[in-house]
């Protein structure tokens, strides 16, 4: 671990010029009700990157900040309270103010990950699945079929072909879900078929489907495979003690970290 691994709670990373760093520069967004930015930054740091937490208001004022980064993370949370629908207000902001900058980032080989509320934002802004390359929204994440928020661990099957960047070498994983609006739905059956047949499905729930998602879909990718959105939380399983059964001697590999490490290593050779 570097000296920055010991960042004090609540203290944002100092902004040394990101592009000049030896480690992969990652921008983790914060603000307006995003609330998992610190652990996502910590997880990226463990994965070997050099993350900065940037307030999304600051980024909207200066979208060119993105040029210094190779990965952008949209963490979980309740952006704008999810008051007009989960992720909705922030998705509109992203669409209006950051679309060009994000498209450029992906075009030059950069990576994007949206987790939970971050996934909702990517879906509602149209950045995912981006079937036609023009950010037309065609999938959504709606209220769980049980009508309740739920925090529980789920087992997922990863389809690594969907994303060489984030998912290579991964199979079954365990991660927690923590959401009230995670039910993945497509605008129509044609969209679902396209996702399935074009290999855009990144992961599915195994066993219990915690929210009634269509086809058990827990995460999807864009056509490049570099933009990943998922409801389960990779940043919440980066070491053994976070697993719910570690006291029973369960020693499963921290698969959340594996996803992020994949992304960082992929971005390192850009």
């Amino acid at each position: 671990m570097t000296e920055k691994a010991e960042t004090l709670p609540g203290v944002r990373a100092a902004a040394a010029p990101a592009a000049a760093r030896a480690r992969v520069p990652v921008m983790v967004l914060s603000g307006f009700g995003i609330n998992a930015e610190i652990e996502l930054a910590d997880a990226f740091r463990r994965a070997g990157a050099s993350p900065d937490i940037v307030h999304i208001g600051d980024l909207a004022a200066q979208p060119r900040l993105l040029e210094d980064y190779r990965i952008v993370g949209f963490p979980g949370g309740f952006s704008f309270g999810d008051h007009l629908g989960s992720g909705k207000v922030l998705a509109s902001l992203v669409r209006a103010e950051l679309r060009t900058a994000l498209q450029q980032l992906v075009r030059r080989g950069g990576l994007v990950i949206g987790i939970c509320n971050g996934f909702q934002i990517l879906a509602k802004s149209g950045m995912l699945p981006d079937l036609d390359g023009d950010w037309t929204p065609c999938v959504s994440l709606i209220h769980n079929d049980c009508g309740r928020f739920e925090n529980s661990w789920t087992e997922c099957q990863i389809y690594s072909a969907a994303s060489e960047a984030w998912l290579r070498g991964l199979g079954r994983i365990e991660l927690p879900v923590r959401h009230g609006e995670g039910r993945f739905v497509c605008a129509d059956s044609g969209v679902l078929r396209q996702l399935q047949s074009n290999g855009r499905v990144a992961l599915r729930y195994r066993g219990r489907n915690p929210n009634g998602s269509q086809d058990g879909i827990a995460g999807i990718c864009d056509p490049s495979g570099r933009v990943l959105g998922l409801m389960p939380h990779p940043e919440a399983f980066c070491d053994r003690l976070q697993h719910p059964k570690w006291t029973r001697g369960s020693d499963s590999e921290p698969t959340g970290l594996a996803i992020l490490r994949n992304g960082v290593q992929f971005a390192a050779v850009l």
Binding site: N35, A36, I38, E39, D42, A43, G76, R148, F149, E150, N151, S152, P176, R178, H233, E235, A236, C238, L241, Q242, W246, T247
Partner: peptide, 13 residues
């Protein structure tokens, strides 16, 4: 289960 008990990533038990 309706309480998010894991956000901030510190949960051990």
């Amino acid at each position: 289960r309706q309480y998010d008990h894991e956000v901030q990533a510190g949960s051990v038990i």
